[in-house]
């Protein structure tokens, strides 16, 4: 059985008279430890699909199974626990809390986790070190560049040792050099820790190295091989 299974998943947005089929009839199985890239033009439904997998956007129809559990059939608490403990999500847009320092932003998801680790402070510092921001521990988001904020968001996604890591164009606002560093880092997490990694990107360059590549057009997916 696949770790993640999408069964006939669709997402329809209705804005007044217009109906947008953001995700259409997607079925997909993903094994534990896979590295999957999803590429596609802007507006093709990548973020919507990733959000459905991440447990933050309920599909209009279809089911998402994680380890056999129908995630969107869970109650509020169960769904929140899935987001907190199983998923690490790197958002497309800035997502740090402005009132918290870098380190506190990393500690935030640990509050929501059911298995709050005792050494989370030390872990947060280690992770900040790993993304090259050891000296920014006490900096507030407003004092950091877009790229630095993005790296903190990546470290935050790893704090609860998720089983799947979802990254929505994670290198969007990074310069080329940092982009390569961050990609190496994410790929290493994937290979060393065996965390399933789904990367949304519009660059086929970055999609390279994925075990499977998926192209998304107008809400539909097609596998384009590795």
């Amino acid at each position: 059985m696949a770790q993640i299974e999408l069964k006939d998943v669709s997402k329809v947005y209705t804005l007044g008279d217009t109906v947008i089929n953001a995700v259409e009839d997607v079925s997909l199985g993903i094994e534990k430890g896979e590295f999957i890239s999803i590429i596609g033009h802007s507006g093709s439904g990548k973020t919507s699909l990733l959000s459905i997998i991440g447990g933050i956007l309920s599909p209009s129809s279809g089911r998402l199974l994680f380890g056999g559990t129908d995630i969107y059939a869970l109650d509020e608490t169960g769904l929140a626990a899935y987001r907190a403990d199983s998923v690490g999500y790197i958002f497309q847009f800035a997502s740090l809390l402005p009132v918290l320092t870098a380190k506190e932003n990393l500690l935030l998801p640990t509050i929501f986790s059911s298995q709050r680790p005792s050494n989370s402070g030390k872990k947060a510092e280690e992770y900040l070190d790993m993304v090259g921001l050891k000296d920014k521990i006490n900096a507030y988001p407003a004092q950091l560049s877009g790229g630095q904020q993005r790296r903190i968001a990546i470290a935050r996604a790893l704090m609860n040792d998720p089983e799947i890591l979802l990254a929505d164009e994670p290198t969007g606002d990074l310069d080329e050099e940092t982009e390569a560093d961050v990609m190496d880092f994410l790929k290493r997490i994937n290979s060393e820790k065996g965390i399933t990694f789904i990367l949304v990107t519009h660059s086929s360059e970055l999609a390279r190295g994925a075990t499977r590549r998926i192209r998304m057009t107008q809400g539909r997916i097609e596998e384009i091989g590795s």
Partner: peptide, 15 residues
Amino acid sequence: REVGIMRAIGAKGSH
């Protein structure tokens, strides 16, 4: 927006 982020990274309604 911030609350949405907190919810998305696992905060329960009770949090």
